[in-house]
Amino acid sequence: MIVDDHAIVGGGLKQFLGNVGGFEIAGQARTGAEGLAMVETGKWDLVLLDIGLPDMNGIEVLKQIKRSQPDLPVLVFSMYAEDDYAMTALEAGAIGYLPKDCSPEEILVAIRRASSDERYLSPNLAEKLLCGSLPTSRKLPHDALSAREFDVMQMLSRGTPLVEIAERLHLSPKTVSTYRARVMEKLGLQHNTDITRYVLKHKLGQ
């Protein structure tokens, strides 16, 4: 499955892999939300994921995929330079990081390895990792949230009442209040409106 908002990328990859043979692009999503929904609807061998999606940051999409499908390989395929996001993507669970300006041969090697559950690093990225010259990943406040705290944060950002959150997550309202307090503390926020702004700013999906 390809998660990329540029139709020409998906179409080009579909044609390229069709000509090579042995692979089929069985699903294409244009947004992070579409990608997350599609992940749950079928059995996929590999997800090719862009970072610059219109509704969500691709790294956040990656984290959510790995929460629900920890064994599903996700290969990040991005226009952003490896120095900017490679470490962040790998730490979030990506099986590899592939810049969009790489050669067709490298794309094929990466897809073959990733679909066989083998980590893929470009020669350039591997050398930087060995030399320790790659910048460390940039940690953000929401990276410290647990999966449950993240769910509560997203619901609060949509204006969902605590009682309704409790019903959806099968928790008591008191427990949800505790999660809300932890979210506020970890993000350094004061009000629910601050949570909404934070979610929108970091494209965490609503």
Rank of each mutant, 00 (worst) to 15 (best):
E185L: 13
V9G: 05
D5Y: 01
Q69V: 12
D45V: 04
E105F: 08
Q154N: 07
V163M: 10
L121F: 14
L187M: 07
L204T: 06
Y80A: 11
A147I: 13
K201G: 07
L171H: 08
F150S: 10
A110V: 01
L171D: 02
V61D: 01
A86C: 04
E40Q: 14
K201F: 11
E149M: 05
L72E: 12
G21K: 07
M87D: 12
K66R: 13
A94F: 03
T136P: 02
T136V: 12
P70M: 12
S172V: 00
S68K: 15
L46D: 04
D117P: 00
I51W: 01
L200M: 13
D71P: 04
A126I: 03
G52N: 14
V199G: 05
F77T: 08
A181W: 02
E82L: 05
L129M: 15
E82P: 00
A126C: 06
T178W: 09
C102Y: 02
E91N: 15
L90R: 06
V61A: 03
K100G: 04
G52F: 00
G11N: 10
E40R: 13
M155W: 04
E164M: 13
D143W: 08
P54Q: 06
G27N: 05
T41K: 15
L17S: 03
G205Y: 07
G12K: 11
A26V: 15
D101H: 13
L140C: 02
D151N: 09
L189E: 01
G52R: 10
R67K: 13
D143K: 07
Y120T: 07
P104V: 09
H142W: 06
V109F: 02
G159T: 05
G93P: 08
M38W: 01
G188N: 11
L156H: 00
W44D: 08
V152D: 02
L187F: 07
R30L: 11
D50R: 00
T175M: 07
V47E: 06
K201S: 13
G27I: 00
L204M: 15
V109E: 14
R168F: 05
K139Y: 05
A92Q: 03
I8F: 14
C131E: 14
E149L: 08
L72S: 13
V47T: 12
A37S: 12
L134F: 04
M184C: 00
S78A: 05
C131Q: 15
L13I: 10
L130F: 12
R138P: 01
G93K: 08
G42W: 03
G96C: 10
